[in-house]
């Protein structure tokens, strides 16, 4: 029933790999509050891609990747430079860099608009991604990138994890401050430049962010987070490619991963729906047991308490002792938990 063409298989493998590495790296990014850096870097890659094409006159994935790499590194250096020497906040510099680099990419594109010919389409594909343009070499390069990313993460697992959770503690253990930062940035650039050809510069950041958000809501364990994010990345990439035969692949993949993340936000065990339900139940309980709490605190028989007393007696929160009513141990426990708030 399922007879897939050779190209389709290639695209499937490629998107799955990108889903995997962006899922893994996304966990590091979101935890270190760097998620939007990926957006800035992917936009900044555009002028690099076009410049690489202008210089080499060659429209191959490897050349594009190299150009994107150089431009992303340059953008990152600029962002760091602005951070160091100005009072400008980080998000402002990200927005400025991403839009200006993208604009510069547009300028370069318009410069070669008459000479690029058929390659123009391949360059334009970078903006929205064009999974179908992938070929055997690109897939080999992707294998290489995947290998590097996993290797670096395995070798430097401990410093990277520490840095992501607590940079100060990380430094206090004697690690070089720059080490984890440079590693994460390097991997980020690697993932971004591998991904933009498939999903485009605009949507690349979603592949990194969404699986990580979903995974974060499913588990509090870092390792589980990595595995979960990777699985979500791969699954949405595969499903997206499958559906993407008639629709634009990149956006479909993004819609799927983002929907998964939104679902988790709403319905996971740490999700919003459960929060709202617990809050609601808590409010109701407070309403019911308020007379009991007041009685316990003041030891006075208020009118509401007298009214509610038979129910409390039946539930065992109040017991009768020498013609007096006393709050039972269960009652004290209940009051403690109610006064403690929602944990």
């Amino acid at each position: 029933m399922f007879e897939f063409s050779y190209t389709f298989k290639l695209v499937m493998i490629a998107t799955a790999m990108i889903g995997a590495i962006s899922g893994i790296l996304g966990v590091f990014l979101t935890l270190s509050k760097k998620s939007l850096v990926s957006d800035a870097l992917s936009h900044s890659a555009l002028p690099g891609v076009v410049l690489a094409f202008i210089m080499t006159k060659e429209a191959s994935g490897l050349v594009f990747m190299f150009g994107a790499f150089v431009a992303s590194v340059f953008a990152l250096i600029l962002i760091d430079f602005i951070k160091k020497y100005s009072p400008i906040k980080n998000d402002t510099s990200l927005a400025l860099i991403l839009s200006s680099f993208f604009g510069f990419g547009q300028v370069l594109l318009s410069l070669i608009r008459d000479t690029a010919g058929s390659n123009q389409a391949r360059l334009n594909a970078f903006i929205f991604g064009q999974a179908a343009t992938i070929n055997q070499t690109d897939v080999f390069v992707l294998y290489g990138n995947l290998f590097i990313v996993i290797l670096v993460i395995v070798v430097f697992y401990r410093p990277m994890k520490l840095y992501v959770f607590d940079p100060v503690f990380y430094q206090s253990l004697g690690y070089q401050k720059k080490l984890a930062e440079v590693l994460i940035n390097f991997l980020l650039i690697l993932v971004v430049i591998s991904g933009i050809q498939m999903v485009g510069v605009i949507l690349m950041s979603a592949l990194l962010i969404a699986p990580a958000i979903a995974a974060r809501l499913l588990s509090n364990q870092f390792k589980n987070n990595l595995v979960l994010a990777m699985m979500i990345g791969i699954l949405s990439a595969v499903i997206g490619t499958f559906l993407g035969q008639r629709l634009p692949t990149g956006p479909v993949i993004v819609v799927i991963t983002s929907s998964v993340a939104l679902m988790m936000l709403l319905f996971s065990k740490n999700g919003l729906v459960r929060d709202i339900y617990i809050g609601f139940r808590f409010k109701k309980q407070i309403k019911v047991y308020l007379p009991l709490i007041l009685f316990y605190e003041t030891n006075e028989y208020s009118h509401p308490f007298v009214l509610a007393c038979p129910t409390y007696l039946k539930q065992g929160y109040v017991i009768k002792r020498n013609n007096d009513y006393v709050v039972s141990i269960e009652g004290v426990r209940l009051i403690d938990s109610l006064m403690g708030g929602i944990s």
Binding site: T30, D39, P248, P251, V254, S258, L265, N270
Partner: peptide
Amino acid sequence: KSSKTKEDAAIGLVFPLLFSVAIILIST
């Protein structure tokens, strides 16, 4: 506000989703 996601991650989650929906609608 729900503090389920960090500020930047929230931005990075919402706009690609809505933008992708727009592109899919346009292309179909």
